[in-house]
Design a protein around this nucleic acid. Structure first.
Lengths: 249, 249
DNA sequence: CGCTGGATTGAATCCTTTCAAGTATAGTGG
DNA sequence: CCACTATACTTGAAAGGATTCAATCCAGCG
């Protein structure tokens, strides 16, 4: 099974054997962490960069009163903040969702990678895509209704998982509870449940037993106002559909 | 008047004369753009990195049906995406809010800057802070009520403007319309107006004629659940108040 | 086979939006 | 200097989407 990080980066540009080998060597010491465990906590000094090889994790922030926001999801191939070392402390926490396999990359390991200009560019691309995902998250939370958010979330995840061979347009494994989804989308778990029922009833998607089945991807994209260009996948991502974002004025 | 970008970076680390001079030279060709004008549009190929010297601008995305989300604000000293050049196209637009002075930095200019290890680290710091601001924006949109969002927004802006000498804890110039604020915070302009009235009535802040007056910064922070550590200002930003974020479980 | 966490549903409540109308403010031209 | 216009701000009333609280159902698991 190929390394999902290599696989993802190759959506940006082809790597040579040497570059692939370099990453594979760095990925030899896999660390396993059980589900629902903090990997890094807010306030910690950044010691390493985590790369997910298998399993799901998330970034989150939580208030003293219990409210919690999941800021981003990590699926296989995802890397967090390669330049985090310039910071004194973490302003958020990282936690596993499922049992997970991760690699802890040291600052030296990152330096080694970025010595290759192509890998350096690939890492920039990756973190720019991560930023773009965050921006789109802001758009979702700020402008999309609950149903639109859910639809958008499913669309995005479909493409991200396809990029590492873990899903198709017809569906994928989604190991989140409805509470997790609620904390991602800024709505309550009850409302997630009701919205999911509506989407099932209208023949869009079905979520059962950690398996998401997409019955009508086109309709899902339409509901979500989903424009995949922000994911910058493939080398020619500038195709704006008409149902989609357009400029002001 | 000192360059706000230099001033901001020096919140991260002191620069030497050579480094300051390098930036000042790159800032010689100032471009002026009038208010309410797109600087870069979604779909454009990235040609340069914009650095704001004076005036306010924003990043936004807009739907075909008119809904618009302002994703981030640029105040003097703010730089957008120094590594944007690896991307094929912009997934969002940039627009001015006020008349503005900006500098367009080419890829070579960025390369020149990052040849200095300290400036390279400072640029990383700056973009990590930008990411952190986006993450906190996600938390606001996902978990905070309208009043909490507004309060948080005012607190964050106070610190960011203080970092470049454009505000104090007592207030600052805020050249946004209530509609702009609404599009930042994911609520309607009508609700912004009502919430602003409530905050004025309860003696927290007053916003009149583009001037924000903060009457009770402590109470504002409390309402906002504001923990400034995500801004990573100063060299010792690890001070978590008790009213503030804490870990799960 | 009972336990436990997650999923589901109903009913009431509430925060926010929508629609509409009215007021204030700033800039423009006669 | 004052109509005139445009834009922003303000407020009310009604409607709606999402939350809250609580109870029930379900499935996997020891």
């Amino acid at each position: 099974m190929t390394n999902p990080f290599i696989r993802k980066l190759e959506n940006f540009c082809a790597l040579n054997d040497e570059e692939r080998y370099l990453i594979e060597v760095l990925c030899r010491h896999v660390r396993r962490v059980e589900a629902r465990t903090d990997i890094v906590q807010q306030g910690d000094e950044p010691r390493c960069v985590n790369l997910v090889l298998a399993g799901w994790a998330c970034r989150y922030k939580q208030f003293a009163d219990g409210r919690r926001q999941i800021i981003s999801l990590f699926v296989p191939g995802d890397l967090c903040d390669p330049h985090i070392f310039v910071m004194r402390s973490m302003d958020h926490s990282l936690a596993t969702i499922t049992p997970i396999s991760i690699v802890r990359l040291s600052e030296e390991a990152i330096d080694t990678i970025t010595r290759s200009p192509r890998l350096q560019a690939a890492l920039w691309w990756d973190s720019l895509v991560t930023s773009a995902i965050h921006r789109e998250g802001i758009v979702s939370l700020g402008q999309r209704s609950a149903a639109e958010r859910l639809a958008h979330f499913f669309c995005e995840l479909s493409l991200r998982l396809q990029a590492v061979g873990l899903g198709t347009e017809a569906g994928y494994e989604l190991p989140l509870t409805q509470q997790d989804i609620a904390e991602m989308l800024g709505i309550t778990n009850v409302h997630v449940n009701r919205t999911l029922r509506d989407m099932r009833d209208s023949g869009l998607v079905t979520l059962r037993g950690r398996q998401l089945t997409i019955h009508d991807f086109t309709a899902l994209k339409r509901l979500a106002i989903f424009d995949p260009s922000y994911l910058h996948q493939g080398r020619e991502s500038v195709q704006l559909d008409s149902n989609v974002l357009m400029r002001a004025n």
